[in-house]
Design a protein around this nucleic acid. Structure first.
Lengths: 257, 257
DNA sequence: GCCCCAAACAACGA
DNA sequence: CTCGTTGTTTGGGG
């Protein structure tokens, strides 16, 4: 559920709340099969949390002894900071920070965690690696791919999901039915800028609505991917359809390439 | 272009015309790259043609020294029997039968020939291997596959192409939009019988129209896959659509499963 | 709303 | 109208 802007907001707040804390104990609640596989938690004991860093749709926790834990929340995973561990349901992982707890929950048990994950090869949507040259190269390489499935494909660019892609395509005035290879150079530039604008602006909008957010999603500010809105800011009625079986919000203003 | 019934008719006539003939010389016209690859024609010299046998959409020529040549005509390949080899265009292969010639032509150069091909594992549509039990097993195994693409898939059953599949599905009263897995047992029985009925009847109808046919296709007798017909024998208007980009003729009488 | 895998489908070339 | 190969989409499951 959380996409890049949500996770970025979580990271900032988790840094404020628990960075610097020492890990006293770690408990894995391995209710579901392969969640948290292969984690040797021994190496974390007594280390301190140095920093939370978002990477694509994953959260990285860097420890001061050089280790890193990556967490992908999938559909329903959540971070919590709690004094009383018993008050938290659906726990899958608990960092005991000497009294306080950083807890990861997931009713579905689909969240994925890894110790010292390999370096990612695909650029994060807000990293400098995601250049305009890279975008145009990939638009050509995947020319017959639908532009919406292109943007949410984590093997092309990491961090964008089904909600923000609709916002980005609306901002760029590109129909979600377009083919990647048919987008003209000028429009690709527009798209590239819209990705940065929408993602960065949304981080601000989330923090404005919920300054202390570490889980859940704020979605009220969304221009089109928004169940409650009937009309986009330009006055066009918001329509819905399905693209590769994903619910899609758009307007007729957006141009099909 | 030729499908099972066409090739079956060719085989009978070629047996009448040139079976027993001795091969004096063989010439490969290797204009296109990989047509006829790997054929050592030496082993054919001086052997006699024993028999033509259709197998799926291929023609097999069995020689009396134990060798077999297989020929897939693809879209535009053709058999010819000619006295004057120079009168034949687009030659790709010539069997000199001491004066007469058995010639294979193909303007596109796509036809494929093989010496002593491996035994096929997929049943031919008119062979006993293609049992009702096999059909129902495959309908289950490929349950989400479209029924038309199922029947023309040469990895499921060999011999049926885009023309005869429409005839078969019309005969069985099954819409070409159906999913393989949704066809009830009773209807599958109907389908199984229709395959045999349509294919065998068509061989007769072809030979009735052109008793000496060894190339080209007779299609006038077709019930629905027929450009000129507007109405099927049951009085329903014939409609056209595309299924996996193949032109498809059907009527609304046919039930969608 | 997530990701993965397998199977089905579509586009292209020979 | 043929068959392969390749890339993309779809559907099911965790």
């Amino acid at each position: 559920m959380p996409e890049l802007p949500d996770l970025e907001a979580y990271a900032g707040n988790l840094n404020k709340m628990v960075a610097g804390s020492q890990v006293i104990e770690v408990v894995q609640y391995n209710s579901k099969k392969d969640a948290l596989a292969n984690i040797n938690t021994d190496v974390l004991i007594s280390s301190r949390i140095e920093k939370f860093e978002r990477d694509g749709k994953k959260m990285l926790i860097h420890f001061n002894n050089g280790n890193t834990i990556s967490i992908h929340l999938m559909l329903e995973g959540k971070f919590h900071v709690a004094d009383d561990i018993n008050s938290v349901s659906f726990k899958i992982f608990d960092f005991n920070l000497n009294g306080r707890h950083l807890v990861i929950t997931d009713p579905k048990g689909w969240a994925k965690m890894e110790l010292n994950p390999a370096q990612e090869k695909v650029p994060d949507a807000l990293s400098p690696d995601f250049s305009f040259a890279y975008l145009t190269k990939m638009l050509k390489a995947k020319k017959s791919k639908n532009i919406k499935t292109f943007l949410i494909d984590q093997n092309i660019v990491r961090g964008i999901g089904n909600a923000y892609v609709d916002e980005i395509l609306w901002e760029a005035n590109i129909s979600p039915e377009s083919k990647a290879g048919k987008i003209p150079e000028e429009t690709a530039k527009q798209l590239y800028q819209s990705i940065g604008i929408v993602l960065r602006r949304s981080i601000d909008e989330i923090l404005q609505a919920k300054p202390d957010i570490i889980n859940g999603e704020v979605r009220d500010f969304m221009r089109v991917h928004n169940k409650r809105k009937k009309i986009c800011p330009h006055g066009y009625p918001i329509k819905t359809t399905r693209i590769s079986s994903k619910i899609t919000y758009y307007t007729d203003e957006q141009i099909v390439y």
